[in-house]
Design a protein around this nucleic acid. Structure first.
Lengths: 137, 137, 137, 137
DNA sequence: TTTT
DNA sequence: TTTT
């Protein structure tokens, strides 16, 4: 039973992320990102763009970094796995959706329009928590 | 605006694939696959398994290969991109879902329990259409 | 300083793997694999094949699985990172080479020509050590 | 014979790229990049960094973009495949090395320290040539 | 529900 | 709605 589940995305946050904590004190950040993919050409030869919107979930110290540093519009690189979550909504209806459980996030615009000391602060934090992130489930 | 959208999956078909053709005669195959990911341990130290179910779409000659050779339970490797499709259902309700648009598929069980001539037939077909598949949209 | 180093390979062992142990008792397996990539066509329209030969290194329990189960010709899936190693050879000449440090290996031919009990034995072992492998350096 | 050969890298150019042309007029750019990977911790708990140096080759319009826009130190994302090249050097000695044949490159610092009009120029060029690049061999 |  |  060989198995593999790997996702790589680069795109921009569509809104500010949300940071919560589990009862056990583990950080959980969620955000939505937009990924623009060139997707063929239209009749006039112009490149069409297909936009993927996808929710991303991240845990632990990486979640805290996301909550502290990322905002709407920020460009990020995400490595993680696809996840299919099913739950019952408040009306008792069975619902389900795909999302990405991230184990690695790179801030691509730590590079841009940012005071040097803030860039250094982010960079230090990211190095400190570097490596693939533990994913609790 | 750096962008990237890449997915790698290995898993098994949950049912037989469906092969259709566009008015222009382009093959379109769809199938659903299950990907079992080890996902942490339970209280007793046993590895828990999280199952991802995801629809895969594929076009062109690769679609025809899928329609001809794959069946329920077959293990495959899929490379493609995540796609978020929105449409209106028959009741006029706006619906949306994620799926994977595949540009490459490897048959992992061409290897197993298969008459040699059938394995060769599949292999020849796959070599003939090899390379990354053109994705029309 | 965003950084990423990720490699995915599928191919066959070119010879039996070698398993050693560090003084601290950590398993270290090395093997060479061949990856055949379709690479354009020749003048007659035949698909040309380019063969990549690459050394793979793996540590810990995964190394032991490699040493126990893999043999020349076996097909494997490898996920890891590229590594550039420099050393001095026995003549004092500075040498260097690239290799892949694997954090995940899937046995693709557990599927083929194998007694059921052996397949189950391998499968159990792989599930037991499943998840991404810790890489010591 | 399932096969796969995929590499993803993010890092910085170690020197300016070189752009040449084949007799048929096809652009060929080569550059060397450094990828810093966090690689375990030393005795004092500090994160160690392992640096990968690797040559990258790219063809066609993407090669021209590389030659025109990239310089030493520039951060890039590279998607491609590993390649093992053997040749005879000027002393008739058989030599070989690994390199990455890129089919996609993203300029990560188009974002930084760059006049708006230059950023737009690069961006337009990259959109124009966007999509995976054809790799001639 | 959306970002550049 | 599910596969091994």
């Amino acid at each position: 039973m060989p198995s593999l589940n790997k996702v790589f995305l680069m795109g921009n946050l569509t809104r500010d992320p949300e940071l919560r904590y589990t009862p056990a004190g583990l950080g959980v950040a969620t955000f939505n990102m937009a990924v623009n993919t060139p997707a063929g050409k239209d009749e006039n030869g112009n490149i069409k763009t297909e936009t993927l919107f996808v929710d991303v979930v991240v845990f632990g110290r990486l979640a805290e970094a996301v909550g502290e540093f990322l905002t709407k519009g920020f460009p990020v690189f995400v490595e993680g796995r696809l996840r299919y979550r099913t739950w019952e909504d408040s009306n008792g209806i069975r619902r389900s959706k795909h999302e990405v459980l991230a184990n690695k996030i790179q801030f691509l615009s730590a590079l841009k329009n940012m005071p040097a000391e803030e860039e250094e602060r982010q960079s230090n934090f990211m190095v400190e928590i570097s490596g693939d992130n533990d994913v609790p489930f």
